[in-house]
Write a protein that binds this DNA or RNA. Sequence first.
RNA 1: GCUGCCGUAGCUCAGUGGUAGAGCACCCCCUUGGUAAGGGGGAGGUCGUAAGUUCAAUCCUUACCGGCAGCACCA
Length: 651
Amino acid sequence: MISKNIVLTFPDGARREYPGGVTGLDVAKGISPSLAKRTVAMALDGRLADLSDPIERDAKIEFVNRDDPRALELIRHDAAHVLAEAVQTLWPGTQVTIGPVIENGFYYDFFRNQPFTPEDFPLIERTMREIIARDRPFTKEIWPREQARTVFADMGESFKVELVDAIPEDQQIKIYKQGDWFDLCRGPHMTSTGKIGNAFRLMKVAGAYWRGDSKREMLSRIYGTAFAKQEELDAYLRQIEEAEKRDHRRLGREMDLFHFQEEAPGSVFWHPKGWTLFQTLENYIRRRQSLAGYAEVNAPQLIDSSLWVASGHMATFRDVMFLVEPKEDDERSYVVKPMNCPGHVQIFKHGLKSYRDLPFKLSEFGKVHRFEPSGSLHGLMRVRAFTQDDAHIFITEQQIAEEVLKVNDLILSIYSDFGFDDVRIKFSDRPEKRIGDDAVWDKAEAALLAALKASGRPWTLNKGEGAFYGPKLEYVLRDAIGRDWQCGTVQVDLNMPGRLGAFYIDEHSNKVTPVMLHRAMFGSLERFTGIMIEHYAGHLPLWLSPVQAVVATITSDADDYAREAAAAAERSGLRVEIDLRNEKINFKVREHSLAKVPVLLVVGRKEAAERTVSIRRLGSDKQQTMPLEAALSSFAQEGVPPDLRRRQQAA
RNA sequence: GCUGCCGUAGCUCAGUGGUAGAGCACCCCCUUGGUAAGGGGGAGGUCGUAAGUUCAAUCCUUACCGGCAGCACCA
């Protein structure tokens, strides 16, 4: 084959001509043997490729060494292959499937009768280190489709055969070898197994469905992670430990906020302090939406199932609804509400509504129950009974875009009060399971999209993820350690009001079905409380802290003064506790620090005589002595919720 | 729901085929101590539930309930 010459552009801007089909390795060697030695892969026009790939066209070329951030995914992917080889060496007959790189590492899914346990890890890791030490080169072969099918079928690798069949006709079947072991893989890989290094670790085992399909086989997945350097691996492991310390389930116990028990799986027992936090958040939302023109209501917890049949819930979401066992002498069956919308529609319907009444905004801190799958429950984040800061806005079709925009602004303003400015918006369109004509969906989606575009915010499409009654926007927050949480939502509903017989009278005296917007801002108060706990690692801002200050005595001589100080703090509007116990101040400081109390007001003989307090803030070991009244007014001011502070400043 | 692991005092955990232990927390006593654990004593558990194996089960088996991790699900 005659190849034309090609021109490669190097990172320093230099351009050189090479014969077509030259490999990256040849190019590197031509520059310097040491460059060739330390290069693990190349990037052509920014795309990673095997160093041994022939280059057939003009391109920008970069040589990637192990320490290059782009090499990290290669290290991890190579490690996944080595993991697979190790497992098949140790347990012949185990089938391999796929082993991709994920956010913090990699995994490999295996199929075998006996699942793995973490006790297997030392042996697997030792075998992996042996394979890495052999430092065999990764080599790529392109196989004809039939050969790949036959080879994998003969090896008993039925999952691989399925993968081969799933590769589109126009794509090559690539096989990567590392010594004798090989795997179907789209690559790229580094030059040899030795480049992986030793900064890797197997993390956990878990089940996972083949191809993510709960109807297919359950595979045994091994998770691992790998880094270029041992220090990076150590830092990652430390970071995991830190994340565990801010787990809201742990902090909930340590701060005495709430608990769960098995008689009520997925339902929260809120303790006084946790409920204080919850209500502080609820009251904040109550003020914000009251100012925005919402009227708060409350609808029944149990409603006859006929209403859920009419709304469409019974047909679509019966599985997750709690149905009440009927009494023998009562033929009616009731449903514990899984959503607030049908209740609000009833309130809208009560009394004739005029077009002049629109937009008609009803809000409710609605406690809903949903029978979530047992495996999905997770502390406050995923529960079976939760409180939505829910609202429904009844409007005309013409008002959709304007009202969606208002909701959008309100949501973003609220998040900003909690320091969340990095908010992502997802647009979810029609799902497969839905009610309503496609023409209606067209209209709803178009209106929502128009509002979204008018907001000027970046957004992404979540195809087919809409609610069964309409398309929606979802607001995703990123917390202090980079995790994403879906909270707020706005949903356009052109279906349910009509199904439930809601209408208003327009200016021509015609009955018209209103459009309904569903919206939530925190989403679930329970979840948002959990997010707050984890986001702040328990160090809540003063206005959210259930106990804002503790007055702690050093000796009992200061008891009377401490009582006085605590009473004064309460009069200033602070949530304060008093600790007169016969314990050393060291002990009290330790205990209240562990309970994450933000302000410790220490009083002894000196403070009692001078009418001062010795202040110790959470997270610092510094002390500051201030006159009592000055300290209290300063803390009272600091404890004002952000919306009320704005109101103060505006006044 | 699926796979795996787990369930012993309020919490964190140890332990054994012959009906249980530690630390912290709790109660009482001593101690009044100046910013992350002062000392002593006491009380507290039908070892998740139910069957089975066994002379004997907290320990072995099975089922159920609950939890954890992941997967699937999430109006």
